[in-house]
Amino acid sequence: MAAAAAAGAGPEMVRGQVFDVGPRYTNLSYIGEGAYGMVCSAYDNVNKVRVAIKKISPFEHQTYCQRTLREIKILLRFRHENIIGINDIIRAPTIEQMKDVYIVQDLMETDLYKLLKTQHLSNDHICYFLYQILRGLKYIHSANVLHRDLKPSNLLLNTTCDLKICDFGLARVADPDHDHTGFLTEYVATRWYRAPEIMLNSKGYTKSIDIWSVGCILAEMLSNRPIFPGKHYLDQLNHILGILGSPSQEDLNCIINLKARNYLLSLPHKNKVPWNRLFPNADSKALDLLDKMLTFNPHKRIEVEQALAHPYLEQYYDPSDEPIAEAPFKFDMELDDLPKEKLKELIFEETARFQPGYRS
């Protein structure tokens, strides 16, 4: 834990890192770190609560700039109880001085990944967590956004079992017609939660990839272990087919990539493993919904509104309290091709509203 900075004593240090967030945020305490930044909790002297502050230093890398800009653009436009918001952003007053960006968010005690390492969940908890994931996802999908990296560590939890989806750095506007060349190379989302079509096709992607990830998360809540822990690309596919069985001819016809289709045709026939054999203690309604989410063919996979209306979630289902976005989200430009200098300018502009004396 960093010592509390005395008023006016300059930035606090946390594990050798400068955290320049005073005077409003003090009493910093280390939480963890990701690929390009550290997260601390801090005391907000204005709202009198502890908050989470993520320090991001992305400006050396085009990919990190892209992810940072995506996350900020999306989260500043989203407003939903099951999606983490941005409360404040701290950065230098000029673009030349801006080396880091500090993002202030609600402090959540833990995440689903940490929880599943230590606790076996009751059916009631599984049901409530799944409902909140789908409630947040309904809003995301209504904005025409794909999260693309749903996994237990991106689901934040607090002691009252509130759940918030975080990390929109890989999110995209849904565009089933656009052929994202190089899709697989830039697709760094965790393999275990990846839909089979991501490994088999490169053309376009749809909201059904997020539903697949939610199915993987439900299976993990039922058993405290990942359902498809593939060691590499082909191993991942083999794990999936080992449980779902061989795809039907109709399902194979959806695979545009001939090499991928021929690979699947070359494999020995596998039978589907019954879900109640894998999860003998699970609620039968939970397994019915799991089956509809972990469907090989993305066109037959359940959609988020149908999933919310499934009998497993009937005690929570309330369409009048499951809000959607006001308007579909649009990125003005494809960020993939922009140089990091341009992305830095866009991050600077996007964060201006939090600067003292800002006038829109």
Rank of each mutant, 00 (worst) to 15 (best):
F331V: 12
E60Q: 15
K292V: 03
C65K: 09
A195I: 10
A219C: 10
E326I: 05
K207W: 04
E186D: 13
D318I: 10
C254M: 00
K300A: 04
Q315N: 06
P176I: 06
S202D: 10
C161D: 01
C166Y: 11
D235L: 04
F59N: 14
L267T: 05
L112I: 02
L150E: 06
S142C: 08
G242Y: 01
W212C: 14
E60I: 08
D336R: 02
A174Q: 12
P226C: 05
D20H: 12
I240E: 03
P93F: 00
I217H: 11
L156I: 01
F279C: 08
I324E: 00
I84Q: 09
L267H: 02
L218W: 08
Y193N: 15
P328E: 03
T181V: 05
Q236R: 00
Y64P: 14
E305F: 02
Y64L: 15
I84D: 10
I140G: 07
I302H: 06
E96Y: 05
A282D: 14
N87R: 11
A282C: 03
K270A: 07
S266C: 15
I83H: 04
V304R: 05
Y312I: 09
C40W: 13
P319R: 12
K285M: 10
C254P: 07
G182P: 03
I86H: 10
V21F: 07
Q66H: 15
S360P: 13
I95Q: 05
I72A: 03
C40Y: 14
Y43Q: 14
I302L: 12
T181P: 01
S284N: 11
S360W: 00
R353H: 07
I74A: 04
D124K: 04
L289F: 04
A7L: 10
K55W: 01
T160I: 11
D167P: 06
R135P: 08
P229R: 03
N276W: 01
D167S: 08
K207G: 05
F183R: 07
A5E: 05
G230C: 14
P323L: 10
Q315Y: 08
Q306V: 02
C65R: 14
I255E: 02
Y139P: 12
G34T: 04
K164M: 08
S57L: 14
L289M: 14
V214K: 07
N257W: 04
E326L: 07
P356L: 12
L163G: 00
R50K: 12
Y139S: 11
L134F: 03
A52D: 14
I302K: 09
K151V: 12
G37M: 12
C254N: 04
K285S: 09
I86K: 05
L234D: 03
P274V: 07
I256F: 14
E109A: 07
I31G: 01
N27H: 01
I103S: 12
E109W: 04
N144P: 01
P319Q: 15
Y316N: 15
Y263D: 03
K285T: 12
G34C: 09
A35L: 09
I103C: 12
I227M: 07
E96G: 00
E314W: 00
D44W: 02
V173C: 04
N123T: 14
D288C: 06
H147N: 13
C127G: 11
Y187C: 09
P319M: 06
P247R: 00
F296W: 05
D179E: 13
N281Q: 11
N297D: 10
T118S: 14
V173Q: 07
S266Y: 07
P176G: 03
L69K: 02
Y64W: 13
M13A: 02
M98S: 05
R50P: 11
K292N: 13
E345K: 14
S360M: 08
D291C: 08
V304D: 14
T181E: 06
L290H: 05
S208H: 03
K117E: 13
R353I: 15
K54C: 01
S208P: 03
D149K: 04
I103M: 09
Y43G: 07
P319I: 03
D167A: 14
E12Y: 05
K48D: 15
L264M: 15
I72G: 00
E96C: 01
V39W: 06
G182D: 07
D106Q: 00
C65Y: 15
H310Y: 11
D20G: 00
L121A: 01
H239G: 13
N281R: 04
G357H: 05
K272E: 00
A9R: 11
A35G: 15
K151Q: 14
E314V: 13
I227P: 05
A171D: 12
N87K: 15
F78E: 02
D336S: 02
L278W: 02
R353P: 06
E250G: 00
S284P: 00
L150Y: 06
G182W: 14
L241F: 11
D291N: 13
A219G: 12
A327F: 00
R148D: 03
L278Y: 07
I324N: 13
Y64F: 14
V21E: 15
E60M: 14
I211R: 08
G169H: 07
R148I: 11
E334D: 15
R77S: 01
M38S: 11
L287R: 09
P247L: 10
F329G: 01
D251N: 13
H125Q: 14
E305H: 00
E71F: 08
D321M: 02
D111V: 14
V14C: 09
D177Y: 13
L237T: 10
I86A: 00
L234P: 04
M38Y: 11
A282S: 13
D321R: 04
S208V: 10
Q306E: 09
R24W: 01
D149L: 05
D175R: 07
T351K: 01
A219S: 14
Y102H: 04
T26D: 07
A174R: 11
L137C: 04
K259G: 08
Y113H: 04
P298G: 01
L308I: 02
R359G: 13
I31V: 00
A7D: 13
N47Y: 15
L222S: 01
L218F: 06
I240P: 07
A174I: 07
D210G: 00
R135M: 03
N154D: 00
A352E: 10
A260Y: 01
C166M: 04
Y187M: 02
T295S: 15
K73H: 07
T68Y: 15
E250Y: 06
N82W: 05
N224W: 05
K285I: 15
M221V: 01
H147C: 11
I165F: 15
P319N: 04
Y358E: 08
F331W: 00
Q132L: 15
T26S: 15
L346M: 13
S360F: 11
K272G: 06
N201V: 11
S153F: 09
D111H: 11
R135G: 02
I243M: 08
F168L: 13
M38C: 15
D251E: 13
N281M: 05
R301D: 03
N154F: 10
H310P: 11
H232D: 07
C127R: 14
Y193F: 14
D20R: 03
A35R: 11
C161I: 04
H147Q: 15
R70Y: 03
R225I: 07
A7C: 08
A6F: 00
P58T: 15
T110V: 10
K55F: 01
N27E: 01
E350P: 00
K164E: 01
I86V: 00
E314I: 00
A189N: 09
A2L: 02
L28Y: 06
G215N: 10
K270D: 06
N27A: 06
D175S: 03
N224T: 13
